[in-house]
């Protein structure tokens, strides 16, 4: 009797939260799934909705432009997250050592993270400027480049340049998480390992990395999800150009739904992206669990 009452009370107390969650994320999600099965237009979507079944999905998966956008996004996510993880961990290792000015450097680590993405994108646009950009000036002055060149106007370099800007902004997140994790690793482990004759490399692989792997995988999941839905930095830096070489899938969804007003197919594109992200997250979760069992 008592436990029944308790259950009822618990549900009653949870009800406001459930209503909010269903209203804020459940309803839009279901509506998006519904739209993805129709030919809805952005303006007056209900009037022009015609049920088209899975046509939108079929068209998306057979569209070479959409697949190209998925490829750009995958490239962006793999390279940027990979670089952020490596640089983040290296910086964390450095900042974990005792040296003069460490506190100042640690504080400075926050700066890129604190910048709004749009400001960061504008700043890097200036750095890459083909006529007076700092990158050109630097490379020409140290003799690595003969003359000023275009970075964001060349399809061969544009996406990499956007990735660099993104890595600069986001590696501190990885570094901070890694740094926090490093501080929990007991010092005596290293002392014991050194006594047993383990070198720097061995100590890193056998003590440091396993100890910070859990927190690092959280950073990995967060950054991958973020990278897969990248939009703002591309919108500000290149708007998908040159020759659509930086058009990521979120940008493609935006164009489809808001510039061409096809909410129906836009929704189906967006859901495909969600599905890919969900698969990635599931994969990570599996790996993390497995790690925990060992």
């Amino acid at each position: 009797m008592i436990s029944y009452r308790k259950t009822v009370t618990a549900w009653l107390l949870l009800t406001p939260m459930i209503v909010i969650i269903v209203g804020v994320s459940g309803y839009p999600l279901i509506k998006t799934i519904y739209y993805s099965l129709t030919g809805a237009k952005l303006i007056a979507p209900d009037v022009t909705s015609i049920f088209v079944g899975l046509d939108n999905y079929a068209r998306a998966l057979s569209s070479s432009k959409f697949l190209e956008a998925i490829w750009h996004t995958t490239y962006f996510a793999v390279i940027s997250v990979g670089a952020e993880m490596v640089i983040g961990v290296l910086v964390a290792l450095l900042l974990n050592e005792a040296f003069a000015g460490r506190t100042l450097l640690r504080a400075m680590l926050i700066l890129p993270l604190a910048l709004p993405t749009v400001v960061n994108a504008m700043m890097w646009r200036l750095i890459y400027n083909p006529d007076f950009g700092a990158l050109n000036a630097l490379l020409v002055q140290i003799g690595m480049l003969d003359a000023y060149r275009s970075w964001l106007g060349d399809p061969a370099t544009a996406l990499d340049m956007v990735i660099l800007a993104d890595v600069w902004k986001n590696f501190p997140l990885v570094a901070l998480i890694a740094l926090a994790a490093l501080q929990t690793v007991p010092k005596d482990l290293y002392e014991a390992a050194t006594l047993d004759g383990a070198g720097v490399w061995n100590r890193f692989w056998r003590i440091t990395l396993p100890a910070i792997l859990g927190p690092l995988s959280v950073a990995l999941v967060l950054r991958t999800i973020e990278a897969f839905k990248v939009f703002d930095i591309v919108y500000v830096m290149t708007r998908g150009g040159p020759a659509s070489s930086t058009k990521t899938v979120s940008f493609y969804v935006y164009q489809e739904a808001f510039a061409y007003m096809r909410v129906g197919s836009g929704a189906s594109y967006a859901l495909i992206v969600v599905l890919i992200s969900a698969c990635l997250i599931a994969g990570y979760m599996y790996l993390i669990r497995k790690q925990g069992e060992v």
Binding site: P155, A243, A259, Y260
Partner: peptide, 21 residues
């Protein structure tokens, strides 16, 4: 009515030609 989309197709075509691809 679909000018925006037609224009972006053409924009990409111009870029491809100007970049020599």
């Amino acid at each position: 009515a679909s000018y925006q989309e037609a224009s972006s197709v053409l924009q990409e075509a111009l870029q491809n030609a100007m970049l020599g691809s």
